[in-house]
Computed example of a mutant assay.
Amino acid sequence: MVEKHIKNLLFNHDCVIIPEFGGLITRYVPASINPVKHMLVPPSKKIAFNEKLVLNDGLLISTIAYANNISKEEAKQMVVAFVHSARTRLNGENRFELADIGVFRYNAERRLEFEYKESENLLESSFGLPEIVARPIRAEEPAVLRTLLKERKAEPAPVKQPLRSRLRRAYNVAAGLALTGLVGAGLYMLSLQTDYTISSLSPTSLFGAERQAAEENASASVTTQMPADQFASAEESLEMEDNAVSLAEGSGLTETSIEATQYAADESVIAKADEQGAAVEVEQPSTTISGKDGRFYIITGGYARMHNAEFSRQEIAEKGHEAKVLEPGRGNRLFKVAVADFATAEEAQAAMDTYRQSFGETIWVYNN
């Protein structure tokens, strides 16, 4: 009778104390897989025993009294009789079995030992879940697959390519590398020329080329506005120089003699220009900046030739701005036209919005 009530209490409680005997404690065990037996075990409760839990908490006695409709004193006497019977069996047979729960024994030190008997799953949430056997599936090879595997094993090893094919491949690779090197060297030599830069090869540089052509046409038109007598004198001087060179070449003179003849022709041209007082003097711009000065300039454009940069500076000066031309420094080939200069970069950046209204969004700040 008492054993039945103990088992029912273990379904709903984690600890059931048997007065003057000990306490049965349950613990949760999660689901597990047995790799040897190939079994899936559901979650369950395991039971342990502690003989020091002998203090009566009233759970077992109250349950027996309520289930049998008797008083607690009568239920207590039933528990005492159960404990006396258990100890008598242990002293006589050294074994007492609690039905569907476990077996009690004395060890060499006369202490109670409990062996849990896994007969029924005491976890209510796993009620009705059996242990599932899941054996591995062994796939059998069909006859077609076995035939394909045999044919694949029978295939001969790949034949090594002949020496001629390998040499042809190496030649193609070497030719490609050589061609790439030649193209790179050509581009580098082209970039060293005075009138070309690497940036001029891009499609966007076409706009800069059109502007440069327009500036050259404008400078040519300025030249054609020279007085007629000065232009005639210049042509006459050039004809004298050409005649002197041709006479020297016809008479079989050496290169040194030709240079002397050209020098004499140049001297005659200068003398004649001084006599007529109509020699064309090229005015050197006084607003040219050469060398580093540490100031910050607002640049409107860069040009490969000085006269193009000067023409742009004159156009800006006609609009009322004091423009300057910055000569190229080391590693640079462009003449830059500046519309303003400042002592610090902050001042130059602050003035950018004002100058963008007149010169567009392509201007930038340059530290000279």
Rank of each mutant, 00 (worst) to 15 (best):
E216A: 12
V54L: 12
Y355T: 02
R89K: 15
A273Y: 09
R164S: 11
I289N: 12
L55I: 13
Q77F: 04
A75I: 04
E249P: 00
E327R: 02
R111S: 09
V54G: 02
R89H: 13
L145I: 12
S44C: 10
I289K: 10
E51P: 13
A348M: 09
L177C: 10
L55T: 10
P162T: 12
A75Y: 00
T256F: 01
S290R: 08
N12I: 08
L201E: 03
A232G: 13
V337Q: 12
L55Y: 14
T224D: 06
S62K: 15
S191R: 05
N217L: 12
E118G: 06
V16P: 04
V245A: 15
A228G: 07
I198S: 11
E249H: 01
F342H: 12
T197H: 04
D195N: 10
A214T: 14
S233G: 15
L182P: 05
E151D: 07
Q262L: 14
G320L: 05
Q212K: 05
P328V: 03
N94H: 01
A175I: 07
S286Q: 08
A209Q: 14
Q284N: 08
V79W: 02
E109R: 14
A265I: 02
A351H: 02
G186V: 03
A264N: 09
K150C: 07
S246L: 14
I18C: 07
A108H: 08
S246A: 14
